[in-house]
């Protein structure tokens, strides 16, 4: 075991003057009995599926299973750039597109879950497009994202049913923020701060999907979580640090997840799922059967 905590992960990089992705790669090769070439082949194939999902989502050719989301990515893509922030807009389009494809039985890469699958590709691919970042740097960013998510999964959970949406969209935003910062040239400490700042902001997020479907609030929450990752990148790259270190934030996430009642953990019993509108929708779904 090369590392098991975030602080060991950071130390492993800093002591050998490596980037985070190099430490993740070394661990993957050691523990999974694989080699560098195979890992990068897989990363490339994952990136291809991510790009394909974004394209499919923007084309808007699939219908969602429940019919609660329809063409949000396409609508945003066709709209003007109200804020004059093209990168920010693209991140939101990409996240919506992937999440819509997921809701429509299209092909996606879980990152770390299917429900939060829009966040990581949105940040990596929109940033790469904006800054003209080479493909190998995008692959390495995906490695960093996975490395950060892996520790969170091991130390806490990335399942909405076990830890609420903080464990899905929260961890995804952290993974995206860490990966994005490193891809832009941020040092390991900066990347880890970006991860921590993003996750910290989404602590406490409930998993209360309407009708139990991965549609409302999931699809739009992918976009807002990706936006949160952008903000965390901006802060971390300027040298702003998280007061609470990553290991403690993930521990807090776990504690919050354990304290969270089960009606807010993917059971569609509480929160948004228990609103008047949600219950009305459920009835209409029932009568359509």
């Amino acid at each position: 075991m090369i590392y098991s905590t975030f602080s060991q992960f950071l130390a492993a990089a800093e002591n050998e003057n490596k980037e985070l992705w190099e430490v993740v790669l070394a661990r993957e090769i050691e523990e999974e009995d694989t080699d560098r070439e195979k890992v990068f082949e897989k990363l490339e194939s994952r990136l291809n599926v991510m790009e394909q999902a974004i394209e499919t989502g923007i084309e808007n050719t699939l219908d969602s299973q429940g019919g609660l989301v329809d063409g949000e990515a396409a609508r945003l893509a066709a709209s003007g750039d109200e804020l004059g922030m093209e990168l920010f807009k693209n991140v939101n389009i990409y996240a919506l597109a992937t999440a819509e494809v997921n809701a429509s039985m299209g092909k996606i890469i879980a990152a770390p879950t299917a429900g939060a699958s829009g966040v990581v590709p949105a940040v990596i691919l929109a940033l790469a497009g904006e800054k003209d970042i080479a493909r190998d740097r995008q692959q390495k960013a995906l490695l960093t994202a996975a490395g950060l998510g892996e520790i969170a999964a091991r130390k806490a959970t990335v399942s909405g049913a076990a830890g609420g949406c903080q464990a899905e969209c929260g961890v995804a935003a952290g993974m995206a923020a860490g990966a994005g910062s490193e891809m832009l040239g941020g040092r390991p400490k900066v990347a880890l701060n970006a991860f921590t700042l993003a996750l910290k902001n989404l602590l406490g997020l409930a998993c209360d999907p309407v009708g139990g479907l991965v549609e409302v609030p999931c699809v739009k929450r992918n976009a807002t979580s990706a936006s949160c990752a952008l903000s965390a990148i901006l802060l971390a790259m300027s040298g702003i640090e998280s007061t609470i270190p990553a290991d403690e934030v993930v521990k807090a996430m776990r504690e919050i997840g354990d304290l969270m009642p089960s009606c807010l953990k993917e059971t569609a019993e509480g929160g948004l799922a228990n609103t008047e509108t949600a219950r009305k929708f459920e009835k209409s779904l029932e009568s359509n059967k």
């Binding site: 429509s104 879980a110 990152a111 995906l142 994202a145 999964a153």
Partner: peptide, 11 residues
């Protein structure tokens, strides 16, 4: 963690 490649919406 970055995977599996799958048809959505739920693992």
């Amino acid at each position: 963690i970055v995977g599996p490649e799958m048809i959505g919406p739920s693992s």
